[in-house]
Design a protein around this nucleic acid. Structure first.
Lengths: 207, 207
DNA sequence: ATATTCTGAATGAATGTGCATTCATTTCAG
DNA sequence: CTGAAATGAATGCACATTCATTCAGAATAT
């Protein structure tokens, strides 16, 4: 006999597939049920309603992702390498768990806005990893002090996120995860200016 | 008597307000009609269906935004300044046309995925502005040649976009548009490393 | 071992509601 | 008067959720 936890998971996995295919609002409970080989009513034994399924996906799967990233990063001390590691892992998710990544990508945005009383704690925790890397680096004198951590974390996360959005939509990559992770990390570390670019240009003094 | 174009606009403006409030899927045609002081049926004299309203918002309003940005940028020659200008204008939209910005922010993501046959041309045109700034700067020797324009444009746009998403959701700013625009532009130009950070660290050689 | 009862997990047809869209009717400018 | 524009009540369907019923297997009795 199948354990309760198994059925819960089976439904979650089915929902990820269906949501990735149609988006939350265009997905039918009946479709999820069919995909999970379960009766429509069964879903309501494990979840309160449709929103609850989506929220569960965020909570559970983001939890796993965060744990993964933190574990991987624990072995690194250099903040630059940590950033690079974060970038690689974030982008790699697109290849490893594409459907999950699509759901998080596309649906996360509304969720915070339209599912009342749901302020995605896991998501905040995830981006805070970036913030702590920066702060650590600033304390060690590796990163410039005038950079506002709140801005840096959003900018870095946004850059990665938009990159994977591109992959979600286009589904054909002109360049790989590794290239993208390296370029983006490098941009945030070194910037884009050449030595010539650095010389006496008013723009470069933008603080 | 009110001109046809006026009524079209009145409906679009109402729809922007309603979509910003509830999101596309949670918005009712009847609510848009009420907001526009128009009968439900009238909306169908000007639009084919609910999706059509959303798409019209993207097309028309993005068109205006693009024209705006291009006009403003025409007076600048320095690529660094152009980037900074783009950043400022993108973020300023949050303050000037908050509701429109929210709709674009949140709904644009699905649209490309779930409204079939709609590949947001205007959006591509918008981000391509960034790409051309980079390419121009590379030709002039101001930006490093090894940066892939496709990646740069997504990273830069993504950084700005995530920043304004934060404002959409939190609605209280710890720092202003100008600060954010300057910091983000500066990050992409100069990077985040201190001189000490640049010295002989393996991470810094990430290309 | 076999029969009998009990339990709660699973089912899926039925329900009821919410809402996009339509269209017969009305309005009113020229 | 005329017809284009506007109306809003009526239509019909799609779908989330419910709940009476089924059923497999555990527990208990014989």
């Amino acid at each position: 006999m199948m354990k309760v936890a198994d059925k819960h998971d089976k439904i979650v996995r089915a929902a990820i597939r269906v949501f990735a295919r149609n988006g939350f609002f265009n997905s039918r409970i009946s479709e999820i049920a069919k995909e999970a080989n379960v009766a429509d009513g069964t879903i309501y034994l494990y979840f309160n309603n449709k929103y609850d399924i989506l929220i569960t996906i965020f909570e559970e799967e983001m939890g796993k992702i965060i744990a993964n990233v933190k574990r991987e990063m624990a072995s690194l001390s250099d903040p630059c390498e940590k950033l690079h590691c974060f970038a690689r892992m974030h982008l790699a998710l697109m290849e490893e768990k594409r459907e999950l990544a699509e759901v998080i990508q596309v649906e996360l945005r509304q969720s915070s806005k339209f599912i009342k009383d749901y302020h995605n704690k896991k998501f905040v925790e995830y981006t805070n990893i970036i913030e702590s890397i920066l702060k650590d680096g600033q304390e060690r004198g590796i990163f410039r002090k005038e950079i506002i951590p709140e801005i840096f974390k959003r900018a870095f996360f946004g850059a990665l996120d938009e990159m994977s959005r591109f992959w979600v939509l286009s589904s054909q990559k002109k360049f790989g995860v590794k290239t993208a992770a390296r370029q983006i990390t490098n941009l945030f570390l070194q910037g884009s200016l050449t030595d010539k670019g650095r010389q006496h240009r008013s723009c470069c003094h933008i603080t």
